[in-house]
């Protein structure tokens, strides 16, 4: 069923598409994190802005990806922006929610103790609350990265110059050539699972005090 000689002939293209997949994902999650972190800090310090920010991010998230890519083509054409803007927007709801939840989860006694020790509110935020929020922030990055890897496959509908591994799935389908579909589908699943596992490891390393939980979850 699988034409292995075709696979062997296309290893170079496969490597290119894997790198493209990772690049599109990294840009989206990186930019999404910067935006989300700013909005989340703002929300934590000024509670009133959180509900509208969360609602807006939530609405954006319900727009189907295919629809957003299709709609953006008429605005930004076939440029990389058409691929990246929706990918970035989709990370916001996951990241903002998790970063805010991370800060909210810091025990009140800890905040009080830090205040008693003379930390200013910004010092407390950076040196006390942020480290304690790290587990949920990493959890958010993990969800956002994995979901972005899935969405990158769909950017292939914009044009052949995007899509990462999704390119093989789409062309393989149009040619009704199972081997090419699998060359896209299997590695994209492996990529998502590998990134998922990598984040679990990262989280365990960054929060050694939660070691028992890490073992239970892994």
């Amino acid at each position: 069923m699988i034409d292995w000689s075709w696979v062997a002939d296309h290893l170079g293209v496969l490597a290119f598409r894997v790198l493209q997949h990772l690049e599109l994902t990294a840009i989206a999650v990186g930019a999404g994190f910067v935006i989300s972190f700013g909005l989340a800090i703002w929300s934590v310090r000024r509670r009133a802005v959180y509900p509208p920010i969360a609602a807006l991010a939530g609405i954006l998230y319900t727009i189907p990806s295919l629809a957003m890519f299709a709609a953006l083509i008429s605005v930004t054409g076939f440029s990389v922006l058409t691929a990246e803007i929706p990918l970035i927007l989709y990370t916001l709801v996951i990241l903002i929610r998790n970063i805010v939840a991370g800060f909210d989860g810091v025990p009140a006694e800890v905040v009080e103790a830090a205040r008693g020790m003379g930390y200013t509110s910004w010092g407390r935020l950076w040196r006390v609350e942020l480290p304690l929020a790290v587990p949920l922030i990493i959890a958010g990055l993990r969800l956002a990265s994995v979901s972005t890897i899935g969405l990158v496959t769909i950017t292939g509908v914009i044009s052949d110059s995007f899509g990462g591994l999704g390119y093989f799935i789409l062309t393989g389908y149009h040619l009704q050539f199972a081997t090419e579909i699998y060359v896209g589908a299997v590695p994209s699943i492996l990529l998502a699972v590998a990134v998922d596992v990598a984040f679990v490891r990262l989280q365990a390393r960054l929060t050694p005090w939660a070691a028992t939980r890490g073992v239970a979850a892994g």
């Binding site: 069923m1 969800l143 994995v146 979901s147 890897i149 899935g150 969405l151 496959t153 769909i154 591994l165 999704g166 799935i169 393989g172 389908y173 199972a178 579909i181 699998y182 896209g184 589908a185 299997v186 994209s188 699943i189 998502a192 699972v193 998922d196």
Partner: peptide, 18 residues
Amino acid sequence: ANLGRAIPSLALIGLAAP
């Protein structure tokens, strides 16, 4: 469930199709 979330839908459609 986490593994299920990790699988891109487009990949799953492609995987199942043949």
